[in-house]
Structure formats: C-alpha cells, structure tokens
C-alpha cells in the first residue's frame, strides 16, 4: 500500500512537473525582464499552506473538518491590476469509514485521501501601497484517489475538472517579498459517489497563508 501511495505521488509529481518548470523557467524570467523594464513587479511566485474544509458533510465525516493543503502559484501581470495565474495544489488526509444509515457494530476501516490539482486562472489586484487586495477565479484539472488502507482494491480514483474562486490580501514586507492571506472556494464535481454521498464534490473552502516573491 505504501508503494502504491508513493507511486501515485511520484506519478502526480511527474505529471505536474512540466507545467511547473515551464512556469518557473518560462514565465519567471519573462517577469523578471518585464519588471526590470517597468520598475514594477510583473511576476510573482507564491508558496502557501492552508486548511481545507470540504463543502460536503460526508467528506468532513470521513476526513475531519480541517485538512492540510499546500499550493504554489506563479503569476504574471497582464495589464494594470490583472494577473494571469498558474498553480499546483495538493490536499491530503487520513480518515475512517462511516456508517450510512442505521449503525450497530460501527465497523470502521482506515482511509487515505489525496487530491492534486493543476490550475489556471485570472486575478485582479488593487494596489494600496504596501497592501494589495485581490480576487480571482480559474479552472482546475484534478486527480484524486481514495483508498481503504486495509482492504486492497476498495476506494476510488479519477480525474475531473473543477473551478476555484479566491480573494485575499498581500502585505509587502520588502519590495520583493510579501506575506499573503487568501481564502478560496473550490468545486470539483466527480459524478461518482457511494451509499454515504451519491454525488461527491471534492470542493470546499480553504484558508491559506504564505510567502509571495515578486519580481
């Protein structure tokens, strides 16, 4: 099982890697060159950690109310205030099965869940000096996997498209470094389900904080 999980992470990482490095190597230097020319940040890279709260009660019953999430985004300013964003996000949790309907033995099995997303979107930011507030939205390509740890073969996995909307603020500590605080809503309908929830949506709310490197 550990091997399976590791393989999944490696595969997900490998698939995400080309996009990520294209963003870093392609957009990053372009942003640097742009910022040099204009004297204002034209690109930014953010690294954030957050807590994700699933929108569906079934998800929260299985995996808890708060799940750790990690994300990285690269943004390029298109015009004044408007940024294009590309990013990567992963959510991972352990949990336990639940009883759908009447319960007596309350038999329980350990679960593992992981979802990795690649995102593209737009963000509009109001620059208020050291502080900037922003709002944005975009689409995501999501890959998820749920496993019953002790029951090989049970669970589910798939690839689905979703979307997200975000809002937050950044505080510029230095010219090249900001602290960010961001909230987002995601929706990842799977068109699958089980006895507990016939139509699973892997979206929800997330609060994240992190560092933004501006160029």
């Amino acid at each position: 099982m550990i091997k399976t999980m590791t393989r999944f992470r490696i595969k997900a990482g490998l698939r995400a890697a080309p996009v990520f490095w294209w963003l870093i190597l392609g957009m990053g230097p372009a942003g640097l060159r742009a910022s040099t020319a204009a004297g204002r940040p034209r690109a930014a890279v953010s690294l954030e950690a957050g807590m994700f709260r699933a929108g569906q009660a079934a998800f929260r019953t299985l995996y808890g109310n708060g799940i750790s999430a990690l994300s990285a985004h690269v943004r390029v300013r298109l015009i004044d205030g408007l940024w294009a964003a590309a990013g990567w996000r992963t959510v991972k949790a352990g949990g336990a099965t639940a009883i759908a309907g009447p319960a007596f033995n309350e038999e329980e099995y350990a679960l593992e869940f992981e979802m990795t997303s690649i995102r593209l979107g737009l963000r509009y930011a109001f620059d208020l000096g050291r502080i900037a507030v922003f709002a944005g939205a975009g689409g995501s390509a999501d890959r998820y996997e749920e496993r019953w740890v002790d029951v090989p073969g049970l669970g589910g996995s798939g690839k689905k498209a979703g979307w997200y909307a975000e809002a937050g603020g950044e505080y510029a500590v230095f010219r090249f470094l900001s602290l960010s605080l961001r909230g987002e809503y995601t929706s990842v309908p799977t068109a699958r389900g089980s006895s507990l929830e016939p139509d699973v949506n892997l979206g929800g709310l997330e609060a994240a904080a992190g560092l933004v490197f501006r160029f």
């Binding site: 079934a58 998800f59 299985l62 949990g95 099965t97 639940a98 009883i99 759908a100 309907g101 009447p102 319960a103 007596f104 033995n105 309350e106 038999e107 329980e108 099995y109 679960l111 869940f113 749920e146 019953w148 049970l154 669970g155 589910g156 996995s157 799977t190 699958r192 389900g193 089980s194 006895s195 507990l196 929830e197 699973v200």
Partner: peptide, 15 residues
C-alpha cells in the same frame, strides 16, 4: 438480522 453500510466517498460495503 441487522445490516449496516460502511462507506467512504467512493466505495461502500455491507456488513
């Protein structure tokens, strides 16, 4: 007889 459905997001079994 009693039965319960043990479920995760994408799979379920009956006990």
């Amino acid at each position: 007889a009693r039965s319960e459905i043990i479920s995760s997001l994408f799979a379920a079994v009956k006990s």
